[in-house]
Design a binder for these strands. Structure first.
Lengths: 227, 227, 227, 227
DNA sequence: TATGAATGAGGCTTCATTCAT
DNA sequence: TATGAATGAAGCCTCATTCAT
């Protein structure tokens, strides 16, 4: 992070106290407003970057969508490039946090992976977050910092976690293919493909991602016996 | 840059040869030169678009790299957009043509798919053609014409061909998972992931795509018995 | 150049005054400045378009002359074409407004027309407004919108007004030639010719427009008896 | 004239003789062809300059319309500017020549002027030549050479001739208004206005130029008694 | 802090002119 | 002579960034 968030800084005593006295927000109005604006900018920027790519996105449009003046953006971000880089962090960090704080692994490995797939299906594929993945694929080469961050925070962790699951699956005899632990990418691949497919080819040929992932899990774990 | 480029070379050997191969006649020098130039522009544009994306690529740079004047580009392409769209066609069409004219399918389905994977490995993953795939993923949403073309010429055909192979594999008993024929994407997914991985994360964690694809095929066909 | 121009002046007195006259409020300095700039651009553009014609005029030169940056022009006008079209409106509207609010028609028809000719002489012939007329003649065919506007606001009204005067003159017995009311253009023609003559042939043979118009009126009304 | 016409120069002896032997043209084929091309270029250029103005006319379009290659134009004209200047000369000279060699002035002055007006009506108003006049009005200020030439060859002569006629008319008692001789422009003005009107406002309000000119002559000569 | 008018570098594109064939 | 591909200067316009209010 290049810029510390202003959350706990500079709470204007007078104005802040007044606001507190009125019983609205605990934090100073000043700061609260600023945070709202910042969030609005982040949301708007996300939207624009996703639908136009980095280079084709205009700060004017971001400002308009966020309901702020163009100059305001520069109160929160150094410039367009670092805005983009911070953006990816800002959006991804909470997602990673949530995934890291996963429920304790109980039940079969297939159940675990299925649960994970279910989440992914609901929260990523076909959503704005899915488009973010495509955006990173698109801009990664021109933004090494973004690629680095994404690899470090998401990919490497995801791969590691998946590898652990696979090894567990192998140990428990749920997974037959022992080499799979060396390439957790294989397990994740169809989910990624689904993300990309929705962005590019949905209108050519809709893809039932859920069913595809099920078939893929059947391939890995063997067909599920009807319980 | 993975491949050395023809920065200021005037007679691009490969392109020149290709052009010469097309016309039976010695071809008036005039025309031959024009073809060379066009090829040089195509190569240069490819390179630039891949490494910077559509919007961030400057025609000036393409011209410089191709060793022609800026205006010359406009003798061959209407504008930047249609250059990009034509480019994708120009590069992809011969690839599709080559793949369409495949050798007669003999041997086991696994052998066939393995052969195909081998080709893909050699000709796409980690090459400029692979980068082109990433470029299409990146720019597709802003270039419907490109996405359409790519779906029509590459994706739909690839999926159809793969489906046929899978069905053959099922019929012959090589493939157990019957639902696989409904989602040929699953078979292709790791190859696509490999393409993207090379573009984005190679320097973070090199991926042995060949071995990964082998493991994936083992997953589908069962482990190969040592011959 | 017939009139000295406000090359790099920042506060164009006349324009500024005009702007101030419009808004009752002291008008935030911001807005006032913007209006000044706009006026400066309009003046500069007028000057350039008149002396070079539409196609040969460079926005760079307009900006330089107006003392603003190139981009500033685009805060006020969509593009070069619509700037030109708006310009004609901007300059002509107040003139028409002034003429429409004419003094009550008293005295002889000849006096009226003479008064009108006097105004025309002072305010149009040999002035920048006269050059504008020539500019419209020059660019009209390529700017139908301009020709339309000019016909609607100036020509058709002028012809109608002149026809009314002629009919009055005929009714009062001041004008003998009855068919003149069918072609008010005849009455106006020498004035127009004077405008064009000043633009093109002044240096070859100066034309005493005032005297010419007098002779023309003598032709129409008969020679004036020495009062 | 900056470039001597190639009419009598360089008649390739051999080819020329051969052509002559065949009995076709007396001049060499070479030269004849060149002249044809030159004429085609002149026609095409006229057309384009008239409909687009100098700056907006592209040599490409002239070449296309003339059926020659772009380079060929440069074999006949030094550059775009001098082409334009020569063009005006080329087109106007024969017209002037024809008018200079007028029929011997017989009959009344009114008849003479009426005859002239008739010619003007037929040959100028509403024709390409009329548009040429508008073109000169449009481009004159930027092409002093053109304005000079036009003044010298057409305007001054026309004015002089008209003045002579007016004086004759006054001497013969046909024209009452004696001062008219000082401003022959007055006599010509409606004809010029008609030219401009046709170019600009024909679609808004068609003008019966013939009738207007008749009324104008009535104004000058008094209404014609029915013969 | 917030604004948005102003800036001007930089990109795309056009087109007069050249020159090898 | 004639061609037209090639050139590159120059123009229009956009948009990230600044800064006075």
């Amino acid at each position: 992070m290049k810029k510390p968030t202003k959350l706990t800084t500079r709470s204007a005593p007078s104005a802040g106290a007044a606001a507190a006295a009125l019983g609205a927000v605990p934090a100073s109005n000043r700061t609260a407003r600023a945070q709202e604006r910042r969030a609005a900018i982040v949301d708007a920027a996300m939207e624009e970057f996703i639908s136009r790519g980095f280079a084709a996105t205009r700060l004017d449009d971001i400002a308009k969508r966020a309901g702020v003046a163009k100059g305001t953006i520069y109160l929160h971000f150094k410039d367009k490039e670092s805005m983009f880089e911070e953006l990816v962090r800002i959006v991804i960090v909470p997602v990673v946090a949530r995934l890291t704080a996963l429920p304790p692994p109980t039940g079969s490995v297939r159940d675990l992976i299925e649960a994970f797939a279910g989440n992914f299906l609901k929260e990523v594929i076909g959503t704005r977050r899915g488009d973010l993945v495509r955006l990173i694929v698109a801009e990664g080469p021109r933004f090494p910092a973004v690629a680095d961050f994404y690899y470090r925070e998401v990919v490497s962790r995801g791969i590691a976690a998946m590898r652990a699951l696979i090894e567990l699956g192998i140990a428990r005899g749920e997974i037959r293919e022992k080499d799979l632990a060396r390439y957790p990418q294989i397990v994740v691949a169809p989910a990624m493909i689904a993300v990309i497919w929705q962005s590019l080819f949905e209108r050519h040929a809709p893809l039932d991602a859920q069913e595809m992932l099920r078939v893929h899990l059947d391939l890995i774990f063997g067909e599920r016996r009807t319980t």
